[in-house]
């Protein structure tokens, strides 16, 4: 039975006289990977910011785990693991220290062995654990951030352009991780302009154009979403 986790209902966001989100509605269920696909200026980041409570909806509603973004943003933030496009962690701290620090901020207690297990799970090389983050590649930073999300046991993941700037093998590793998290019951909501990457991991894709959802694609059984079909629709909108 599907359980709605991330819900947008007739969501509208206006900045001055500009309509950024126009009657956007979608639902992401528990354990589902939902990708919001769109070009530059489509409204992807605004949607994400609305769910994070940093942009207020003009009308309509948005909720996470049944809590409204307008009244319960603190609760939502405590349940969501957010990975921005460029993972922002502390360069002067090691991977381990970053995780320990952010866990302490989330008031979550984990042992060193728990942290090591999480880092192994995200396939971050052991010799990098005690190196300063300033020396990490973007992929390594992302793995660290995902390990943090795992350790926080965050039931919901918000990913902003997660594969941007990653090399192909890192993208593969990332996709496997997201799939594993989804299978373990985590709900993943990602915004991206990477058609191929979205089709690889998403159970459903919403195509966003000029603030409106103009198409929804979903897997048929165990088959991945047809990349060609999505690409054609995306290209038509962004021609």
């Amino acid at each position: 039975m599907s359980e709605p986790v991330v819900v947008a209902e007739s969501l509208n966001v206006r900045f001055a006289d500009q309509c950024v989100l126009d009657d956007v509605s979608f639902t992401v269920n528990r354990g589902e990977v939902f990708a919001l696909l769109g070009g530059n200026g489509a409204g992807k980041s605004t949607t994400l910011k609305t769910f994070l409570g940093t942009v207020a909806p003009t009308s309509g509603s948005a909720s996470v785990l049944g809590h409204s973004v307008t009244s319960d943003s603190d609760f939502i933030r405590s349940k969501v693991a957010y990975l921005p496009e460029s993972v922002m962690l502390y360069g002067h701290l090691t991977g381990m220290e970053n995780i320990e620090y952010f866990l302490s901020l989330a008031d979550v207690k984990r042992s060193a062995s728990d942290i090591e297990a999480a880092l192994k799970r995200v396939a971050l090389q052991a010799d990098a654990w005690h190196k300063k983050l300033a020396d990490y590649s973007k992929g390594m930073r992302q793995k660290t951030a995902i390990a943090l999300a795992l350790l926080r046991s965050a039931p919901v993941l918000f990913l902003d352009e997660p594969t941007s700037g990653l090399d192909p093998s890192a993208i593969d590793e990332f996709n496997q991780l997201v799939t594993a998290l989804s299978e373990a019951g985590s709900t993943v909501f990602m915004v991206t302009h990477d058609v191929y990457g979205a089709c690889q991991v998403a159970h459903r894709i919403g195509l966003l154009d000029q603030g409106k959802i103009v198409g929804v694609f979903e897997r048929s059984g165990s088959e991945l979403i047809d990349t060609e079909q999505v690409h054609t629709a995306f290209a038509k909108r962004n021609a």
């Binding site: 994070l52 940093t54 603190d74 609760f75 933030r77 405590s78 349940k79 969501v80 693991a81 957010y82 921005p84 460029s86 922002m88 962690l89 502390y90 360069g91 952010f102 901020l105 989330a106 926080r152």
Partner: peptide
């Protein structure tokens, strides 16, 4: 400037 403030806030830190 490093973006960590945003990360902290979006992780629920007041």
């Amino acid at each position: 400037e490093a973006g960590t403030l945003h990360v902290m806030i979006t992780q629920g830190v007041k």
